[in-house]
Design a protein around this nucleic acid. Structure first.
Lengths: 99, 99
DNA sequence: TCAATATTTGACGAAATTGTCCAAACTTAA
DNA sequence: TTAAGTTTGGACAATTTCGTCAAATATTGA
């Protein structure tokens, strides 16, 4: 099964729009090579990138954030046996907090 | 509503067992002051602590991991609007991967 | 209270992380 | 093939993070 990380996702979006790294990176106010590394998963994305990315890639912020979160959780907690329960607990607490 | 972080949780467990920081820290092979900071939320816990903690605190590893994960997700992603969806997506991917 | 034990604080250094710069490698179109 | 534009690699500095150490403070029990 293919692993679709955050980097692959924004690369695909960027290529669909035929935007060069140069332009997107400038819009995010980071170096071209930094963005290149983020897209290839060599470095993690900063949360600061998410909103600008959703604008310049014309992609729903919800989709971008969701992909970002799922990817980071995988990387951070992938090795833990009880991850599923942990996620459920986090959701539960979140729901309580919202009220 | 009270915030029950990972630190508060292990502190409570430790006090219930009347164990001094000194002993638990030694078992985790870290400095007393490091554990003190972790318990007070001044520093994050390392995943390496989880298994030893479950042993010396005689607490189910699942509970410890779950608390750890929920707490870290809160801290890492608390500011994102679409966290709930992100968690759901992470769970979905996890389920797929398990197969 | 006093002494022993437990906990917290803050300065410190080592190591990891983050992003930049610029040169090398790759791609594309004429 | 060449030239222009794009992407990648890696050395580097700045910043942040992680844990230790030792001193200060707090707690406990006799």
């Amino acid at each position: 099964m293919k692993e679709q990380g955050f980097g692959d996702f924004i690369r695909r979006m960027r290529e669909e729009k035929n935007l060069p790294l140069r332009k997107v990176a400038a819009y995010l106010d980071i170096d071209t090579s930094t963005l290149s590394k983020v897209e290839r998963g060599e470095r993690p994305a900063s949360p600061d990138y998410l909103k600008p990315l959703s604008i310049i890639l014309e992609t729903d912020l919800k989709v971008i954030q969701t992909t970002f979160i799922a990817d980071k959780i995988n990387k951070d907690f992938g090795g833990l046996e009880h991850l599923t329960e942990g996620l459920k607990e986090a959701e539960k607490q979140l729901k309580r907090k919202k009220k």
